[in-house]
Amino acid sequence: MTQEIHGTVADGFEEAREEFAAFVAGERPDYEGQLCAYVHGRKVVDLWAGADAGSLYGVFSSTKGAAHLVVALLVQDGTLELDREVTYWWPEFGAEGKDGLTLRDLLAHRAGLVGVDDGFTREELADDRLMAERLADQKPFWRPGTAFGYHALVIGALTGEVVRRATGRTLQEIYEDRVRAPYGLDFWLGLPESEEPRFRSVQPMLPTPPQQAALDARPDGPHTLAAIAFNTQVPDPGAPEDYANSRAVRAKGPASAGGVASARGLAGMYAAMISEVDGRPPLLKPDTLAEFGQIHSTGYDLVSRVHKSFGLGFQATADTWYPFLGAGTVGHSGAGGSQAFADPRCGLAYGYTRRRLAFPGGAAPENNALVKAVHRAAVRG
């Protein structure tokens, strides 16, 4: 039996409901997912199937959007400076030839510090400070600043340690005080025990035989850069869903991939970033938003082995995923299939979550049609 579609869309956004319903109709009967969008601070799409609108899901790397909104706010405040060396705040980071790396290059995935040789324990993966201590001593895997590669599990620990050294507070604490709590967002970096009943455990990917063959054929040997970046070189790396399903991860909210959110929370955060919401001015000024959305790394990603583009902390979503979006669109996808971004040129903020991991990882393929439908309506005004 197909899941029933719940929720509302504003006039002009009916195509988004049609696309969501068409996708859900073709999915497994146990599908759970949510879609939400704002335009110029007004909620225009709020749909879900399975569970309910308040269900919370592990959003993996979509967490990086929240983490680097905090960094952008601190740059905007003048607390952080993009072209200062990381060692200005964190002297120990300079070991093994990393002393010249700037915060700008760190945010652009150019540090060459995608993991540690012998991998992280599960306890370390849940704790940004433990990871940062290990990373400070690690020799980078390429000369810092000369190339880029996705720092999948560590970028939030690295930038978070800069935040902690500069402010005396964790990135998670600043996010809670300046972003999540003021807007009442269901996007958590550190899920309180009181909210645990709303969390829906992440379910594993169920690829078709051809998809499984494609997964098995990937050249992710035990000593590759990708293995180090995704911590699969350890004896028992566990499955991706184990990470989000760990209470330790959810409680501490590691800033690379430990966030928990609903689609409303994802879209609401990006709406607050670029638009007036509930009488509050946008969190980011136009110059800050343009700086963080400017492409800093583009081309062959040494870790992912595909073309990618990054701004500062954020994916360059228009180039990496949806070329019809406006220049300067900032966001981040997640391994569970989530997608979230802000397109400041048309005022669109988008969030999508799902419970079961999607093939092949990253933003789930259904986002292609969903984003296109929502964007078309937003541009029409």
Rank of each mutant, 00 (worst) to 15 (best):
residue 138 Q to G: 14
residue 233 Q to E: 06
residue 238 G to Y: 01
residue 18 E to H: 06
residue 246 S to N: 04
residue 52 D to M: 08
residue 351 G to I: 10
residue 19 E to M: 09
residue 4 E to P: 10
residue 330 V to I: 15
residue 171 L to K: 05
residue 335 A to P: 00
residue 65 G to E: 01
residue 368 N to D: 12
residue 324 F to N: 06
residue 159 T to W: 02
residue 64 K to H: 07
residue 8 T to D: 08
residue 123 E to Y: 02
residue 133 E to M: 09
residue 220 D to Q: 08
residue 77 D to K: 07
residue 254 P to N: 14
residue 72 A to Y: 00
residue 258 G to E: 06
residue 164 R to H: 14
residue 369 A to E: 09
residue 156 G to H: 05
residue 310 F to Q: 09
residue 329 T to W: 02
residue 228 I to S: 04
residue 241 E to L: 00
residue 127 D to N: 15
residue 380 R to H: 09
residue 108 A to G: 12
residue 371 V to Q: 00
residue 283 L to V: 12
residue 346 C to D: 15
residue 121 T to M: 03
residue 3 Q to H: 04
residue 93 F to N: 10
residue 265 G to T: 11
residue 228 I to Y: 01
residue 377 A to D: 05
residue 260 V to N: 00
residue 17 R to W: 05
residue 365 P to I: 13
residue 109 H to R: 02
residue 119 G to V: 09
residue 118 D to S: 10
residue 173 E to M: 09
residue 322 Y to V: 10
residue 327 A to K: 07
residue 63 T to V: 12
residue 371 V to Y: 00
residue 275 S to D: 13
residue 45 V to K: 01
residue 185 L to H: 05
residue 294 Q to N: 05
residue 358 A to C: 11
residue 73 L to W: 02
residue 55 S to G: 14
residue 171 L to P: 10
residue 274 I to R: 02
residue 115 G to H: 03
residue 36 C to I: 11
residue 279 G to L: 07
residue 50 G to W: 01
residue 235 P to F: 06
residue 23 F to E: 11
residue 143 R to D: 13
residue 328 G to N: 06
residue 236 D to S: 12
residue 15 E to V: 11
residue 235 P to H: 03
residue 329 T to Y: 02
residue 158 L to F: 11
residue 178 R to M: 06
residue 134 R to Y: 05
residue 164 R to Q: 15
residue 47 L to P: 06
residue 364 A to N: 04
residue 261 A to Q: 02
residue 155 I to L: 15
residue 17 R to H: 08
residue 220 D to T: 12
residue 93 F to W: 13
residue 96 E to T: 12
residue 174 I to T: 12
residue 57 Y to A: 11
residue 274 I to S: 11
residue 227 A to P: 06
residue 358 A to I: 10
residue 104 R to M: 07
residue 180 R to A: 15
residue 331 G to W: 01
residue 27 E to V: 12
residue 143 R to E: 15
residue 352 Y to I: 12
residue 210 P to Q: 08
residue 356 R to A: 14
